[in-house]
Design a protein around this nucleic acid. Sequence first.
RNA 1: GCUGGAAUAGCGCAGAGGGCAACCGCAGCAGGCUGUAAACCUGCCGUCCAUAUGGACUUCCUAGGUUCGAAUCCUAGUUCCAGCA
Length: 448
Amino acid sequence: MDFRVEKVLPNGLGRVGTIRTAHGEIKTPAFMAVGTQGHVRFLSAEDLRGIGAQAMLSNGFHLRRRSHEIAEAGGLAEWKPTESFSSEHDVDSSRRHGRVASSSSVVTSGDSRKENSVGLRPDNLSAEPWRGPTLTDSGGFQVMSLGSGLGKVVSMEKERGVVNTAHKERLAQVREEGVSFIDPFDHEPEFIGPEESMQIQCRIGADIHMAFDELTSLADTYEYNIEAMERTERWALRSLREHIKHRDDLGYRQNLYGVLQGGRWEDLRRQTARNLAKMEVDGIGFDGFGLGGAFLKEDLGEILRWCNEELPMDKPRHLLGLSHPDDILIGAEMGADTFDCVAPMREARHGKIYTRDGNYNLRKMADSGEVLEPGCDCATCRAGWTRGSLRALWRSGDTEKKQKYYNLASTHNLRFIVRLTEEVRQAMLDDNFAEYKCEFLARYYAGR
RNA sequence: GCUGGAAUAGCGCAGAGGGCAACCGCAGCAGGCUGUAAACCUGCCGUCCAUAUGGACUUCCUAGGUUCGAAUCCUAGUUCCAGCA
């Protein structure tokens, strides 16, 4: 993988660089937009480019049944998602809201309860493919989110007592060979191991793939983290072996990152970093590394330091799944090059708007005539959309208006995070990262 | 004018003699969301006291009544809707 480091922070960890892929460059530090199903929800490829997103992260688990179709199209970058998604929302909302029809024999026409799951449409889909750099996750996150973390929020808060989901209730069960899933949408049983994940990812054909790993939860013990980490390393070797067989199948070079686990323990983190850094099959090692795990906020910087002090400087590192501004700042400082996260888009959909002066909830902005964030360079703010008018779209009950809201709000939050990484990069180049970080955080968290 | 039907918390609706201060949705209020089972989730949402378990009070159009007990049954009234004149 072509990765050039252009500048290193005085701490010897954080850096500015450029990753070159078959579908374009990524100037790091960079945030990748999450488009799990092959497109970012409610944002078109054109929107993404306008936002300045340099890469898109999708998920092999969610796209596994369409991988052949994607390969036919020439790979993820050239694939245009069509409407035949698993109708996630219909299945989901009928399960969650589904109830036996009222026992009354009279069916009233205005019973809105039964119409709840009706009228939902697929996300707005792009008129054209993304065509830029892409990354796919292996499905490793789903080992946790459908397994021990089923029904839980993946949180970095310490206080709430985190307890793992009981084994028999899980939709994912881990064995040495791989993981047996129950598909959360259609409830079909399925198996994915490292080989399957690599085959799927190589058909999807993203520029960067993740080795199949097991993410532990904050509730797991030291002993279990050793077990999961060692298994993740064995899976990493199997992933590498399988990846090498298929990495050129679509006519361009695909790259594989090995994923570090090890929870919050220094010995585990350093050990797995060293093991993965020297892991090879036929003289071929990983092209980069994924920094994985569930972190307590206060531990993040130190854990990343342990990992990155052991990893080679000349290979890129992707911090998996984090994007709150403080996480990005500490991540970049400690040597993470790329980031991804669902939070900017999901929180936008849920009404949380990011600004330099902290976040606010659009629910409380019914009467506001201000733009989302004065001075913001995102398309939504430049077009002059006010908080009140966006709130009205969001709460309208009209599907098309809501979709418009999701598009406009996602645009703003995503641009906010992308801009943050652009500024971090520039600050590093200008030798004032420390001041930039300090000022940004002081202002962002001033209200606390 | 006659004949049916309906009146339930801010709104839309459930409930058809005791588990009812009353389901659910919307609206409202307060939180949450980090490699997406997330256009979602949690809590509150008659009034008053209590951090809370809880307690007190006033409720299902109005007024009477039946009953140990009524949002639910009966009578009358009021208003609204539909059909017929």
